[in-house]
Design a protein around this nucleic acid. Structure first.
Length: 479
RNA sequence: GGCCCCGUCGUCUAGCGGCUAGGACGCCAGGUUCUCAUCCUGGUAACCGGAGUUCGAUUCUCCGCGGGGUCACCA
């Protein structure tokens, strides 16, 4: 039997990074043996729908390199849900309920006042005569359809990850299946759709676990076979037992892309949050993951920390592993997509020479600008930094003058020659490597951390280097 | 609070009765070195607690403790 899985997001906001992980697992399970992955938009709550959310969510999923084989929208399937709700009504698994929201609020308040451990529907309409109820419906009275939960019945369910779980229907409420606006609730729609779409496996967040018995009952009422269900641990912030929160950083899948995280790095990071191959392999392409993934190796836990430091490491790892050409191309595409302006010199092919120097220092693409700025614009010099490596101001100035005299007459300008000449100079003048090179580094770049100095000088070019040495010397003189 | 789930280094995890409890990120130290980064080497650090089963429990059972989820005309 071919495996068919699905992802069923609601267009109620920006796509969450945790959703991407669930999607990834479902995707891998289906693709592993040539099955299908289905995308289904669960837009049955008109009130919560956010303008443009559906489109953005589909775009971001594709931006991460994932795709689907079939696509559905629940709002276009309303007739189907109505039809199947009738089946439930007929076989006594559901009933019409005419209670108003005001009355339900009132019931809840009373129950709370009584100090009951939980609130529940009091079953006022549960025993209504069927013909009587139908007449009221025909008369145009507003109604919902509720699931008729059997009293005190054990429901045993086998979770593919968690194992056997037993529920009792006494803990369940007669929840609403069909809303008064004619839209189904999640419980009804999900069961009907998963069945009609031949979904064989459902991997979803563990927050859905409590609704399983309702679904079991629904499958039973319809006489349908229940797909394999498996519940996944949720993502939390590292160090806090809280769901991912903006307070700690990005939570939207799209935001990570904008920051300059690579899809393949993010996917690799996500794969290992709740699953592992049982070997020590941690670097995974999507293809390899699809091949190795299995439900059996999903970790049985309820919360997994989203370690942003490890994500950063993965991203740097993937950046370092790329060819300079590819990385350069990726950075240009990224800057275009997110309207990030880069120096013209960097955008041109010669930018690759600069990129080569900073590649191993890059963790996210948005760090590029900060790391390359002094190659393209004059750095602002800080007197303190400029002189702190030499004995004093005049020593710093002397060092800069020596380098100016050394570089000025040079006809060829390459890393190797510069290196040799500079070291000869140090010997001759008796400068310590650190004081000389750090002073030089600050003078030409404005910062204390750069790629190796001679490579930096080579790319900067003789003209710029001499200009900056002059500027640095002036600065010292002026103070 | 009722119900349900979970519990190995700080974090992600391996482990499926007997291991010096392994790997990765982080952190620390050393090496490379003019800085940063990379890279290499080494190190740090964990079985929630208590009973029970057993010759032997991280592993099985029970209780406790801790954490999480859920109790809507939201998904």
């Amino acid at each position: 039997m071919l495996i068919r899985t699905r992802m069923a997001p609601s267009p109620t906001g920006e796509y969450h990074i945790g959703g991407l992980r669930t999607l990834l697992y479902n995707y891998a399970l289906a693709k592993k043996d040539g099955g299908q992955f289905i995308m289904r938009i669960e837009d049955t709550d008109q009130k919560r729908e956010v303008e443009g959310a559906e489109e953005r969510l589909l775009v971001v999923i594709k931006d991460y390199g994932l795709d689907w084989d079939e696509f559905y929208k629940q709002s276009e399937r309303l007739d189907i849900y109505k039809e199947y709700a009738q089946v439930l009504l007929k076989n006594d698994s559901a009933y019409y309920c005419f209670c108003t929201e005001e009355r339900l609020d009132q019931v809840r308040k009373e129950q709370q006042a009584q100090g009951l451990p939980r609130t529940f529907y009091d079953g006022k309409c549960r025993g209504l005569d069927k013909d009587e109820a139908f007449k009221r419906v025909l008369a145009g009275e507003s109604y919902v359809i509720r699931q008729k939960i059997p009293k005190n019945e054990e429901i045993v369910y086998e979770d593919a990850v968690l194992g056997k779980i037993t529920f009792n229907t006494a803990d369940l409420d007669d929840s609403i299946l069909m809303k008064s606006d004619g839209f189904p609730t999640y419980h009804l729609a999900v069961v009907i759709d998963d069945h009609l779409m031949n979904i064989t496996h459902i991997l979803r967040g563990i927050e859905w676990l409590p609704s399983v018995p309702k679904h079991v009952l629904l499958y039973k009422a319809f006489g349908w076979e229940m797909p394999v269900h498996a519940h996944l641990p949720n993502l939390k912030e590292k160090g806090a037992n809280k769901k991912l929160s903006k307070r700690f950083g990005d939570v939207h899948a799209a935001a990570f892309l904008e920051k300059g995280y690579l899809p393949e790095a993010m996917l690799n990071f996500l794969m290992l949050l709740g699953w592992n191959p049982g070997t020590e392999k941690e670097i995974y392409t999507l293809e390899e993951f699809v091949k190795d993934f299995s439900i059996e190796r999903i970790h049985k836990t309820d919360l997994v920390a989203f370690d942003r430091e490890k994500l950063l490491w993965f991203n740097g790892y993937y950046i370092r592993g790329m060819s300079v050409e590819d990385l350069h191309k990726r950075i240009l595409e990224w800057s275009k997509k997110f309207n990030v302006s880069l120096p013209e010199g960097f955008v041109s092919n010669s930018g690759q020479m600069v990129l080569k120097l900073i590649q191993e220092r890059l963790k996210t693409l948005n760090e590029v600008s900060g790391l390359i700025s002094y190659f393209y614009e004059e750095p602002s010099l800080d007197m303190q930094k400029l002189t702190e490596f030499a004995k004093d101001k005049s020593a710093a100035k002397e060092i800069l003058n020596s380098f100016t005299e050394l570089f000025g007459p040079l006809e060829s300008w390459g890393t190797k020659q510069l290196d040799e000449k500079a070291h000869l100079l140090l010997q001759e003048k008796g400068y310590k490597p650190k004081e000389a090179f750090m002073t030089l580094r600050v003078a030409v770049s404005g910062v204390t951390a750069t790629p190796p100095i001679f490579e930096t000088l080579e790319i900067l070019g003789k003209e710029k280097v001499l200009t900056r040495l002059k500027a640095a010397t002036y600065l010292i003189d002026s103070q």
